[in-house]
Amino acid sequence: MTSAAYQVTHLDALEAESIFVMREVVAELERPVLLFSGGKDSIVMLRLAQKAFAPGHIPFPVMHVDTGHNFPEVLDYRDRRVAELGLQLVVASVPEALASGLVREPADGTRNRIQTPVLLEAVEKHRFNALFGGARRDEEKARAKERMFSFRDEFGQWDPKNQRPELWALYNGRHHPGESIRVFPLSNWTELDVWHYIARERIELPSIYYAHDREVVERDGMLYAVNEFLPARAGEDRFKARVRYRTVGDASCTAAVRSDADTVEKVIDEVAATRITERGATRGDDRVSEAAMEDRKREGYF
């Protein structure tokens, strides 16, 4: 038997690993939920979930932590996908949490950090004990240390110095009531892998991932779309630019990049050639301090 015939590509290997991880969760943990933001990674995760359980339905609901600062194209996409797949959508709403007093609006107006208590409250209310997240290890240095199955205590906290060893493909999802597991099926994917997969699977994305003309301002060296959540500041010059989004987060702190890439093939070429990480290029929230991500993750953020 020649082994040369039994080759798989790296994308097939990544897909097989992610599907295995999703099936493990459903087999071992009673109440999983998939974090679905309408961003490309969560969209790829949803496709993998479809594949893992076909011809059956995806056997868990999806949850969106809604900061209230959304790109309309992304919300439309979210609702369309959820309807097509017949999924149950749980919305953990930051505006509602602001109204009820669970969280307070931060002085700088960005709602990244206050998502965490809102997420944790929804997890508690629905008694979810496994949360699929689309985070990848290539995104950020604290994420490079994450396990595939990441244990969270009853406060949703991550303890990076005390993680469970993760051997072979033997994932340990055991936990006590109130504790939970975050699961990252895309851990070993890079941004480029995600785009190759989107191309291969012909996955539709919200239009803002492709080049379009938009009114922007330049702030801290990044281009931000001017919208109701992010008005131009006094003295800031508004101008039209051809841009696309590399990541989709809170509309008040996610920047666009200059781009002419209006097809998936062009995006792949662009991503392959870029010399800046996607978070470095687009996320105001990660610039706060050297360990901004680690600190947010410890509190229960993804």
Partner: peptide
């Protein structure tokens, strides 16, 4: 580059596995 945790940077040692691509 690989010592991504605060404690690792402070102590100048690698504590846990980091993955790179």
């Amino acid at each position: 580059l690989t010592d991504g945790l605060r404690a690792e940077r402070e102590q100048g040692i690698t504590i846990d596995v980091a993955y790179r691509y």
